[in-house]
Design a protein around this nucleic acid. Sequence first.
DNA 1: ACAGACATGTAAGAAGTTACATGATTCA
DNA 2: TGAATCATGTAACTTCTTACATGTCTGT
Lengths: 196, 196
Amino acid sequence: MERKLSHTALVILGLLSSGTKSGYDIKRIVDRSTRFFWSASYGQIYPELRGLTERGLVRGEPGGQGGRARTVHELTRAGREALESWLHADDEFVHEIRDEGMLKLFFADAADPEARLANLAAMRRRYDALARRLRDEIEPLAAESPGAFPLLTARFGAEYYEWLVDWCDRAEAELRAASSKRTRRARPSSPTTLEP
Amino acid sequence: MERKLSHTALVILGLLSSGTKSGYDIKRIVDRSTRFFWSASYGQIYPELRGLTERGLVRGEPGGQGGRARTVHELTRAGREALESWLHADDEFVHEIRDEGMLKLFFADAADPEARLANLAAMRRRYDALARRLRDEIEPLAAESPGAFPLLTARFGAEYYEWLVDWCDRAEAELRAASSKRTRRARPSSPTTLEP
DNA sequence: ACAGACATGTAAGAAGTTACATGATTCA
DNA sequence: TGAATCATGTAACTTCTTACATGTCTGT
């Protein structure tokens, strides 16, 4: 192990640990699974696959059915060892979130009230779409895959986005309550006259 | 508005919207607030501040107390407009997560049971530390800042990480239950003899 | 005198996205 | 025949991190 492996490399090793795959396969699987906590593009996958091959962690052979050009990759012994070494290390690990909606919400004091609600609604839509996708498409897919952990993480994803949708609902209620309070104060024509 | 602004640029504009700040100030504030859904390093902040100045969205002047070198930046009219235009647009927004712990969990079928639990424990520790930090340090800080939204997002962060901690606990219980079931089956010396 | 916070910045490179180019095969 | 999917790849670019260099001021 000369140099530290990139996370993309680790994703590749991880996916290859359950059978040989092409770069195309890897991209397809990533988009239906790890994407929710680690994504990868072709621009990373293919060069990384080459790098891993040069380092002897992966072996590729022309293969697949039909005359269609295809290179299937499999882990070498060293590759499996590298994967396991990562899996068993307990270094500080990367955890980061980038959420432009949340960022807008943070600065929402500089925005109009309607824009705040619109942003929150857009966030809710996004999270809800992800929750549905995970529940309806990714979970059944993970349930069929070998091993228990893809399913565990897919279920995590679904619950997670459902929680976020719920948070958006609560935040929206709070925003509406705050703004109606302000409106009531601004318009003395409301039944404030009932007060003693 | 010639070219699209980077998110770092938007963070800077957002922070400057509530008063003039130096690059150092911006970094310090980011690390105590937006960091949890959008981070930035000096290597981005200073060059971006220069770029924004060149584009006329920000104005910097040598300032501050004492002889200490310091450049305070403020929004120009165009800068405020750019910020508001972003805040009011409803383009598709960036939402991504990178969580190495979750990634390890996804591939945990290739790891030892102890490593799985260790990883889950490390995740829990991390989320718990973030939850505490947000509750005890960031929330009080946000409560003092002008405007309601920094506080709203800080409370979100705290609840969010508390939810994650809870998820880790549930996942751990599940893992332990599954492994003890397997252990019981693997060792017929258990009081299986009681069965009819 | 020295540690630690304040303050600004850059250089190198890693990581990642986007858009494009290319071509085979399958199926309607 | 033409659209969709399979399949591989690269070039150019942006973004971001890391590590370093430099110096001031404050408090002990």
